[in-house]
Protein backbone atom coordinates (compact mmCIF):
# COMPACT_ATOMS: atom_id res chain seq x y z
CA UNK A 1 0.00 0.00 0.00
CA UNK A 2 3.01 2.17 0.30
CA UNK A 3 3.58 1.71 -3.37
CA UNK A 4 1.15 4.51 -3.75
CA UNK A 5 2.93 6.94 -1.58
CA UNK A 6 6.16 5.86 -3.14
CA UNK A 7 5.04 6.59 -6.61
CA UNK A 8 3.81 9.97 -5.62
CA UNK A 9 6.74 10.45 -3.35
CA UNK A 10 8.92 10.38 -6.43
CA UNK A 11 7.69 13.74 -7.49
CA UNK A 12 7.47 15.12 -4.01
CA UNK A 13 10.80 13.90 -2.80
CA UNK A 14 12.57 15.84 -5.46
CA UNK A 15 11.83 18.77 -3.25
CA UNK A 16 12.86 17.14 -0.04
CA UNK A 17 16.15 18.60 0.89
CA UNK A 18 16.01 18.86 4.56
CA UNK A 19 19.13 19.09 6.57
CA UNK A 20 19.24 17.01 9.70
CA UNK A 21 22.31 18.53 11.18
CA UNK A 22 21.28 21.78 12.81
CA UNK A 23 18.75 20.68 15.39
CA UNK A 24 18.03 21.81 18.98
CA UNK A 25 18.80 19.60 22.04
CA UNK A 26 17.43 16.10 22.35
CA UNK A 27 14.96 16.67 25.19
CA UNK A 28 13.61 19.79 23.58
CA UNK A 29 13.26 17.88 20.33
CA UNK A 30 11.29 15.14 22.03
CA UNK A 31 8.93 17.47 23.84
CA UNK A 32 8.37 19.57 20.78
CA UNK A 33 7.79 16.39 18.75
CA UNK A 34 5.26 15.20 21.32
CA UNK A 35 3.48 18.54 21.24
CA UNK A 36 3.43 18.91 17.49
CA UNK A 37 2.83 15.27 16.67
CA UNK A 38 0.73 13.71 19.42
CA UNK A 39 -0.15 10.72 17.22
CA UNK A 40 3.44 10.20 16.22
CA UNK A 41 4.49 10.35 19.83
CA UNK A 42 1.90 7.72 20.72
CA UNK A 43 3.33 5.62 17.90
CA UNK A 44 6.82 6.05 19.27
CA UNK A 45 5.65 4.83 22.67
CA UNK A 46 4.06 1.74 21.11
CA UNK A 47 7.23 1.04 19.15
CA UNK A 48 9.35 1.38 22.29
CA UNK A 49 7.06 -0.96 24.21
CA UNK A 50 7.40 -3.61 21.53
CA UNK A 51 11.16 -3.17 21.39
CA UNK A 52 11.30 -3.66 25.16
CA UNK A 53 9.13 -6.78 24.89
CA UNK A 54 11.43 -8.19 22.25
CA UNK A 55 14.66 -7.38 24.05
CA UNK A 56 13.58 -8.46 27.51
CA UNK A 57 11.39 -11.39 26.44
CA UNK A 58 13.15 -14.00 28.62
CA UNK A 59 12.62 -11.87 31.74
CA UNK A 60 9.13 -10.66 30.93
CA UNK A 61 7.49 -13.87 29.85
CA UNK A 62 6.20 -16.33 32.42
CA UNK A 63 7.00 -19.53 30.44
CA UNK A 64 9.35 -21.06 27.92
CA UNK A 65 7.84 -20.25 24.50
CA UNK A 66 8.43 -23.75 23.14
CA UNK A 67 7.58 -25.76 26.23
CA UNK A 68 4.49 -27.85 25.65
CA UNK A 69 2.19 -28.62 28.52
CA UNK A 70 0.07 -31.46 27.22
CA UNK A 71 -2.18 -31.44 30.28
CA UNK A 72 -3.17 -27.87 29.47
CA UNK A 73 -3.85 -27.89 25.76
CA UNK A 74 -6.08 -25.04 24.58
CA UNK A 75 -6.69 -23.87 28.13
CA UNK A 76 -8.79 -20.70 28.45
CA UNK A 77 -7.20 -17.44 29.68
CA UNK A 78 -6.53 -17.40 33.39
CA UNK A 79 -6.07 -21.16 33.77
CA UNK A 80 -3.59 -21.95 36.49
CA UNK A 81 -1.16 -24.81 36.56
CA UNK A 82 1.70 -25.86 38.80
CA UNK A 83 4.07 -23.87 36.66
CA UNK A 84 2.04 -20.65 36.81
CA UNK A 85 -0.96 -18.92 35.32
CA UNK A 86 -1.70 -18.85 31.60
CA UNK A 87 -2.97 -15.26 31.49
CA UNK A 88 -3.97 -15.39 27.84
CA UNK A 89 -4.60 -19.13 27.72
CA UNK A 90 -2.64 -21.79 25.85
CA UNK A 91 -2.46 -22.94 22.25
CA UNK A 92 -2.97 -26.36 20.71
CA UNK A 93 0.36 -27.66 22.01
CA UNK A 94 -0.33 -26.35 25.51
CA UNK A 95 2.12 -23.48 25.15
CA UNK A 96 1.48 -20.19 26.91
CA UNK A 97 -0.02 -17.68 24.47
CA UNK A 98 1.22 -14.61 26.36
CA UNK A 99 4.78 -15.93 26.29
CA UNK A 100 4.54 -16.67 22.60
CA UNK A 101 3.20 -13.19 21.88
CA UNK A 102 6.10 -11.62 23.76
CA UNK A 103 8.62 -13.81 21.95
CA UNK A 104 6.66 -13.23 18.77
CA UNK A 105 7.61 -9.56 19.09
CA UNK A 106 11.20 -10.74 18.77
CA UNK A 107 10.51 -12.55 15.52
CA UNK A 108 8.41 -9.70 14.15
CA UNK A 109 10.89 -6.96 15.03
CA UNK A 110 13.86 -9.03 13.96
CA UNK A 111 12.32 -9.63 10.56
CA UNK A 112 10.93 -6.09 10.42
CA UNK A 113 14.17 -4.29 11.24
CA UNK A 114 16.45 -6.59 9.28
CA UNK A 115 14.38 -6.30 6.12
CA UNK A 116 13.85 -2.57 6.52
CA UNK A 117 17.46 -1.71 7.31
CA UNK A 118 19.02 -3.97 4.70
CA UNK A 119 16.41 -3.13 2.07
CA UNK A 120 16.54 0.62 2.64
CA UNK A 121 20.33 0.77 2.92
CA UNK A 122 20.96 -1.20 -0.23
CA UNK A 123 18.32 0.96 -1.89
CA UNK A 124 20.09 4.08 -0.62
CA UNK A 125 23.44 3.00 -2.00
CA UNK A 126 22.01 2.00 -5.35
CA UNK A 127 19.79 5.06 -5.60
CA UNK A 128 22.50 7.59 -4.77
CA UNK A 129 25.05 5.79 -6.92
CA UNK A 130 22.71 5.66 -9.86
CA UNK A 131 21.86 9.34 -9.55
CA UNK A 132 25.45 10.39 -9.06
CA UNK A 133 26.95 8.53 -11.96
CA UNK A 134 24.00 9.13 -14.23
CA UNK A 135 24.24 8.33 -17.93
CA UNK A 136 24.24 4.74 -19.05
CA UNK A 137 24.69 3.31 -15.56
CA UNK A 138 21.64 5.14 -14.42
CA UNK A 139 19.67 4.03 -17.43
CA UNK A 140 20.52 0.34 -17.08
CA UNK A 141 20.00 0.49 -13.39
CA UNK A 142 16.60 2.09 -13.84
CA UNK A 143 15.51 -0.65 -16.20
CA UNK A 144 16.52 -3.32 -13.68
CA UNK A 145 14.64 -1.53 -10.94
CA UNK A 146 11.62 -1.35 -13.24
CA UNK A 147 11.69 -5.08 -13.64
CA UNK A 148 11.69 -5.69 -9.92
CA UNK A 149 9.05 -3.05 -9.38
CA UNK A 150 6.80 -4.82 -11.88
CA UNK A 151 6.10 -7.54 -9.32
CA UNK A 152 3.63 -6.63 -6.61
CA UNK A 153 5.34 -6.95 -3.24
CA UNK A 154 3.49 -9.99 -1.94
CA UNK A 155 3.67 -11.84 -5.25
CA UNK A 156 7.43 -11.60 -5.29
CA UNK A 157 7.83 -12.49 -1.61
CA UNK A 158 5.41 -15.37 -1.90
CA UNK A 159 7.09 -16.83 -4.95
CA UNK A 160 10.48 -16.71 -3.31
CA UNK A 161 9.47 -18.54 -0.14
CA UNK A 162 7.20 -20.97 -1.94
CA UNK A 163 10.04 -22.00 -4.21
CA UNK A 164 13.00 -21.92 -1.87
CA UNK A 165 11.24 -23.27 1.18
CA UNK A 166 10.15 -21.49 4.29
CA UNK A 167 12.69 -20.56 6.88
CA UNK A 168 13.28 -17.30 8.66
CA UNK A 169 16.27 -16.51 6.40
CA UNK A 170 14.24 -17.07 3.27
CA UNK A 171 11.41 -14.97 4.64
CA UNK A 172 13.83 -12.12 5.27
CA UNK A 173 15.32 -12.42 1.80
CA UNK A 174 11.88 -12.65 0.23
CA UNK A 175 10.74 -9.45 1.92
CA UNK A 176 13.99 -7.53 1.53
CA UNK A 177 14.46 -7.98 -2.21
CA UNK A 178 11.28 -6.18 -3.26
CA UNK A 179 12.07 -3.36 -0.79
CA UNK A 180 15.34 -2.46 -2.48
CA UNK A 181 14.05 -0.99 -5.75
CA UNK A 182 11.25 0.80 -3.92
CA UNK A 183 13.71 2.68 -1.74
CA UNK A 184 16.27 3.11 -4.52
CA UNK A 185 13.74 4.83 -6.71
CA UNK A 186 12.69 7.37 -4.12
CA UNK A 187 16.26 8.05 -3.04
CA UNK A 188 17.39 8.42 -6.63
CA UNK A 189 14.84 11.06 -7.45
CA UNK A 190 15.87 13.08 -4.38
CA UNK A 191 19.51 12.61 -5.21
CA UNK A 192 18.96 13.69 -8.80
CA UNK A 193 17.58 17.00 -7.63
CA UNK A 194 20.59 17.51 -5.38
CA UNK A 195 23.02 16.71 -8.14
CA UNK A 196 21.71 19.67 -10.07
CA UNK A 197 22.44 22.07 -7.21
CA UNK A 198 25.50 24.23 -7.95
CA UNK A 199 27.43 23.28 -4.82
CA UNK A 200 27.96 19.75 -6.08
CA UNK A 201 29.51 21.26 -9.17
CA UNK A 202 31.56 23.48 -6.94
CA UNK A 203 32.74 20.49 -4.97
CA UNK A 204 33.69 18.77 -8.17
CA UNK A 205 35.51 21.84 -9.38
CA UNK A 206 37.42 21.84 -6.11
CA UNK A 207 38.65 18.36 -6.99
CA UNK A 208 36.86 16.43 -4.25
CA UNK A 209 36.74 12.71 -4.81
CA UNK A 210 33.52 11.00 -5.88
CA UNK A 211 33.22 9.11 -2.62
CA UNK A 212 33.65 12.32 -0.64
CA UNK A 213 30.99 14.09 -2.63
CA UNK A 214 28.64 11.18 -2.24
CA UNK A 215 29.21 10.68 1.48
CA UNK A 216 29.48 14.34 2.53
CA UNK A 217 26.99 16.00 0.27
CA UNK A 218 24.58 13.63 -1.34
CA UNK A 219 23.87 11.00 1.33
CA UNK A 220 23.06 13.49 4.12
CA UNK A 221 20.69 15.24 1.79
CA UNK A 222 18.67 12.16 1.01
CA UNK A 223 18.43 11.08 4.65
CA UNK A 224 14.87 12.37 4.93
CA UNK A 225 13.31 10.17 2.25
CA UNK A 226 15.57 7.34 3.39
CA UNK A 227 14.33 7.49 6.98
CA UNK A 228 10.74 7.80 5.85
CA UNK A 229 11.05 4.72 3.69
CA UNK A 230 12.83 2.85 6.45
CA UNK A 231 10.11 3.34 9.04
CA UNK A 232 7.43 2.53 6.50
CA UNK A 233 9.28 -0.68 5.63
CA UNK A 234 9.35 -1.91 9.22
CA UNK A 235 5.56 -1.92 9.45
CA UNK A 236 5.21 -3.44 6.02
CA UNK A 237 7.74 -6.14 6.71
CA UNK A 238 5.95 -7.13 9.91
CA UNK A 239 2.68 -7.35 8.03
CA UNK A 240 4.22 -9.28 5.15
CA UNK A 241 5.91 -11.75 7.46
CA UNK A 242 2.59 -12.29 9.22
CA UNK A 243 0.84 -12.82 5.89
CA UNK A 244 3.41 -15.32 4.68
CA UNK A 245 3.35 -17.18 7.97
CA UNK A 246 -0.42 -17.17 7.84
CA UNK A 247 -0.26 -18.82 4.43
CA UNK A 248 2.05 -21.42 5.97
CA UNK A 249 4.94 -20.18 3.86
CA UNK A 250 6.72 -18.09 6.44
CA UNK A 251 8.26 -18.78 9.81
CA UNK A 252 7.83 -22.40 10.92
CA UNK A 253 6.92 -24.12 14.15
CA UNK A 254 7.97 -24.11 16.87
CA UNK A 255 9.34 -20.57 16.42
CA UNK A 256 6.85 -18.14 17.99
CA UNK A 257 5.49 -15.75 15.37
CA UNK A 258 2.22 -13.84 15.30
CA UNK A 259 1.13 -14.79 11.79
CA UNK A 260 1.84 -18.43 12.48
CA UNK A 261 -0.14 -18.26 15.71
CA UNK A 262 -3.07 -16.85 13.76
CA UNK A 263 -2.80 -19.61 11.19
CA UNK A 264 -3.02 -22.31 13.84
CA UNK A 265 -5.66 -20.42 15.74
CA UNK A 266 -7.90 -20.31 12.72
CA UNK A 267 -8.43 -24.04 13.13
CA UNK A 268 -9.69 -23.58 16.67
CA UNK A 269 -11.60 -20.38 16.25
CA UNK A 270 -14.93 -22.12 16.82
CA UNK A 271 -14.05 -23.52 20.20
CA UNK A 272 -11.14 -21.42 21.46
CA UNK A 273 -11.52 -17.98 19.88
CA UNK A 274 -9.04 -16.31 22.24
CA UNK A 275 -6.02 -17.79 20.56
CA UNK A 276 -7.05 -16.01 17.36
CA UNK A 277 -7.72 -12.68 19.08
CA UNK A 278 -4.40 -11.96 20.81
CA UNK A 279 -1.95 -12.42 17.92
CA UNK A 280 -4.21 -10.32 15.69
CA UNK A 281 -4.16 -7.52 18.23
CA UNK A 282 -0.38 -7.80 18.51
CA UNK A 283 0.12 -7.50 14.74
CA UNK A 284 -2.29 -4.60 14.42
CA UNK A 285 -0.83 -2.72 17.35
CA UNK A 286 2.75 -3.25 16.28
CA UNK A 287 2.22 -2.15 12.70
CA UNK A 288 -0.01 0.67 13.91
CA UNK A 289 2.77 1.99 16.12
CA UNK A 290 5.32 1.99 13.32
CA UNK A 291 2.92 3.61 10.89
CA UNK A 292 1.95 6.39 13.31
CA UNK A 293 5.57 7.06 14.06
CA UNK A 294 6.55 6.94 10.40
CA UNK A 295 3.76 9.30 9.47
CA UNK A 296 4.84 11.83 12.05
CA UNK A 297 8.41 11.46 10.92
CA UNK A 298 7.37 12.20 7.38
CA UNK A 299 5.53 15.33 8.50
CA UNK A 300 8.49 16.43 10.58
CA UNK A 301 11.06 15.80 7.87
CA UNK A 302 9.08 17.10 4.94
CA UNK A 303 9.68 20.84 4.98
CA UNK A 304 6.80 21.57 2.70
CA UNK A 305 4.26 19.94 4.96
CA UNK A 306 5.90 21.57 7.94
CA UNK A 307 5.65 25.03 6.54
CA UNK A 308 1.99 24.34 5.95
CA UNK A 309 1.26 23.82 9.59
Amino acid sequence: MVTVSENLADAKNAELQDDLRDRPGLWKQITSFARKQPLGFAGLIVVLVFICLAVFAPWLSPFDPEASSYEHMLAPPGTTSDAGTFYLGTDDFGRDVLTRIIYGARTALFVGFTCAIVGATVGLVLGVGSAFFGGKIDLIFQRIMDIFMAFPLIIMALSIVAIFGSSIQNVIIAITIPFIPRCARVVRSSALAIREIPYIDAARANGFSNSRIIMRHMVPNVMAPFLIMLTAFVGQAILLEASLSFLGLGVQEPVPAWGLMLKNAQEYIRSEPWIAIWPGIAITLGVFGFNLFGDALRDALDPRLRSNQ
Partner: peptide, 9 residues
Protein backbone atom coordinates in the same frame (compact mmCIF):
# COMPACT_ATOMS: atom_id res chain seq x y z
CA UNK B 1 -3.58 4.29 10.00
CA UNK B 2 -5.13 1.47 12.00
CA UNK B 3 -6.70 0.27 8.79
CA UNK B 4 -3.33 -0.11 7.16
CA UNK B 5 -2.10 -1.97 10.22
CA UNK B 6 -5.05 -4.34 10.46
CA UNK B 7 -4.24 -7.55 8.58
CA UNK B 8 -7.06 -8.20 6.13
CA UNK B 9 -6.94 -11.92 6.83
Amino acid sequence: IAGIALPSF
